[in-house]
Amino acid sequence: MAIDVGTLLQILFWGLYAGCIYILLATGVNLIFGVMKTVNFAHGELLMIGAYVTWTLFSLTGLNPYLLLVATVPVLLLFGIAVQRLAFRPVLGSHKLNEIFLSIGLIYLFQNGAAMIWGSDYQSIQSPFASMAVTIGSFRLPLDYVIIIAVTIGILVGLQLLLRRTRLGLALRATSQNRKAAMLSGINVERMDMIAFGLGAALAGAAGTLWVVSGQVFDPYMGSVPAVKAFAIVILGGLGSIPGAIIGGLFYGVAESAATYTLGGAWKDAISFIVLIVVLVIRPTGLFGERGE
C-alpha cells in the first residue's frame, strides 16, 4: 500500500491531536496512582462530566468555549476531591480489588446520572474558529487542533512546574515516593491524596473541554473507550512515569493507525490490548515502570 510522505505526516498530525486527549487522561491516572496507589477505572467518566460541564456553561453563557476551560477545570478539581473523599478514602488500605469494584459502581453512577441530568442524546457544539485553518507548506491544519495541541503542552508544562517548583509539588512527589517517610516528615498524606485525585480529575476535565471544542460529539457513555486507552497507555508507559505516558500515547496512535490499515477498523480497540498483553507478558511492570509498586 503506497502512501506518500505528505499523507503519512498528515496521519501523524491527527494522531498527535488524538493523543492530546489520551495524554491528559493518562497523566491524570498516573498522578493519582503515584500518590494514592489507587486506580480509578471511572476516570473516563470524569472526561465525560468535563465535556458536559463545558457544554452546559457554553449553553448558558455563550462564551468562547476555550475560555470555559478556566471554569471547567476548577469544577472538576472540586468534583474529584469530593469523589476521593467520599468514595475512595474509605476503602484505601483495604484489599486492592475493592478499588476496582468501587470504580465499576462509579461508572454506573456517573454515566446514568449524566443521562438523567443532561439526557442521553448526542450533543455537540462548534468552535468559533471551526472554519479557520493554518497553512504550513502543503498542509492545511485546522486552527482548533493547533490550539488544542498548544493548550495541552501548556497544561503539561504547568503541571511540571507545579510538581517541581512548589512546596505542594514537593509534598506530592514525596508522598508518591515514600508515603510513610512523607507522613513522618509532617506531610498530611491524606490531603495529598485528595489533591492528587483532584488534579487528575481536573486534567480529565480539561480533556473534556478540548473534546467538546474540537467539535466531537459526546454522550454519557463517551468516556469508557478513551479511558481504556489511557489505562493501556499508562500500563505500557509504566505506572508513575509521565514521559512514559507521552511516549506510550504516541506509540498507541501509530499502532492503531497501522491496525486500521492492515487488519481493518474493527481491530482498532483490540490492538491496544494485544500490545498491552504482549508487553505485560514480557515485562509485568510495563516498559518504563519501576519494579514493584
Binding site: A87, G105, Y108, L109, G113, M116
Partner: peptide, 9 residues
C-alpha cells in the same frame, strides 16, 4: 442504574 451503582459503592 444509578441505584445499582450506589448500592455497589
Amino acid at each position: 442504574f444509578v441505584i445499582v451503582g450506589l448500592l455497589l459503592i
